[in-house]
């Protein structure tokens, strides 16, 4: 009864935190450079946020259910490499056209799903810490892509790339496909998290997996599904990524996992699980993208300090939330 007044305040403050951070960045950007709010720049930022964003939506579920996946960056690089290899080798048989692109997409989705299932199975069936399992698979995928590329870069056949390119660059009504797909993934993700039994079960497991078990929740299956879903979304992100530059190398997707995790946490999802929100993750992704965008658009600080500014803003965003949570 003493907490009746506390609950609503807590909620609204933790909601306001990240939104406020995003608004502050937008205002700062608009003041520092008039092109910041230009249509082109907005589209650029949203499109480049899409890869991390799509992955981060999947990561929100994994973290909410009390897990973690460090392998997504390497996984994306590996799937991109695999996709390019398959498409290049199928090219003579299929020719440039929709079938070969569909084949590539199928490879990406199947590869992602399999990779995610593999992580999830090892974690749930063998009961090994997610941190260790995905740290291991991170190394495996990273070195597999280096091996596939023979230490260099895998490049999509030039003519095929030109054909596939519109998937990144064009879209409907001037909004490119990555943004549309990102938006779709976010809307679906938000609905699943908020309004389905699966989302509720994720939060319950992350909150206390014993309680979930004793409440007849199929804990292992839900956990497995979060990793498989994340893998699938990595595949979706890769489908959007490959047409951009048409290449994959050992340098592809480096540190994406940390960016995705950072975005999830900035958005207000609890790192140790139990509470997650997809829309918050979107805000987290946008905050991260906008910081580097603004730093590029201005000569405000030495580029050597870009990392420091990013780090400081990430910590600040989370501190703001924590303080509002602790407030009262």
């Amino acid at each position: 009864m003493t907490d009746t007044t506390k609950a609503p305040i807590r909620l609204s403050m933790s909601v306001i935190g990240p939104v406020l951070g995003l608004l502050a960045l937008i205002v700062a950007g608009a003041l520092l450079n008039p092109n910041f709010l230009g249509w082109d720049n907005i589209v650029n930022v949203l499109a480049r946020s899409a890869f991390i964003g799509i992955i981060a939506v999947g990561m929100t579920f994994v973290i909410t259910a009390g897990g973690l996946d460090l392998s997504v960056g390497s996984m994306a690089a590996f799937i991109a490499g695999l996709m390019i290899l398959v498409m290049n080798s199928a090219l003579p048989a299929l020719g440039v056209g929709i079938p070969v692109v569909l084949l590539g997409m199928a490879v990406a989705l199947a590869g992602g799903l399999l990779a995610g299932l593999l992580n999830g199975l090892i974690i749930t069936r063998l009961g090994i810490e997610a941190f260790i399992v995905t740290l291991g698979s991170m190394g495996i995928y990273r070195s597999l892509v280096t091996w596939l590329a023979d230490g260099g870069t895998l490049s999509l056949d030039f003519s095929l790339r030109s054909f596939y390119q519109p998937v990144y660059y064009s879209g409907i009504l001037g909004i490119s496909w990555p943004i549309l797909v990102f938006a779709l993934v976010v809307v679906l993700g938000e609905i699943v998290m908020r309004a389905t039994a699966f989302g509720r079960h994720c939060a319950a497991i992350g909150s206390n997996d014993q309680v979930a078990k004793y409440s007849s929740v199929r804990v292992a299956r839900v956990r497995l599904m979060t990793y498989a879903g994340l893998g699938l979304l990595v595949g979706v992100a890769t489908i959007m990524y490959v047409p951009r530059l048409g290449s994959a190398s050992a340098a592809t997707g480096v540190l994406w996992e940390l960016e995705a995790i950072a975005a999830v946490i900035i958005g207000g999802t609890v790192l140790k699980g139990g509470f997650g929100r997809v829309w918050g993750t979107v805000i987290g992704v946008l905050i991260l993208s906008l910081i580097s965008n603004i730093l590029n658009l201005t000569d405000f600080v030495s580029p050597y300090l870009n990392g420091a500014i990013q780090g400081a803003i990430i910590i600040l965003a989370v501190v703001l939330q924590r303080e509002s949570k602790a407030g009262t």
């Binding site: 092109n35 951009r244 290449s247 190398s249 590029n296 658009l297």
Partner: peptide, 16 residues
């Protein structure tokens, strides 16, 4: 010396 980073930086140069 990275393709993705230079893509992003160049996009922002073009906006600026």
């Amino acid at each position: 010396w990275n393709r993705d980073d230079s893509f992003t930086v160049m996009q922002d140069f073009l906006s600026k």
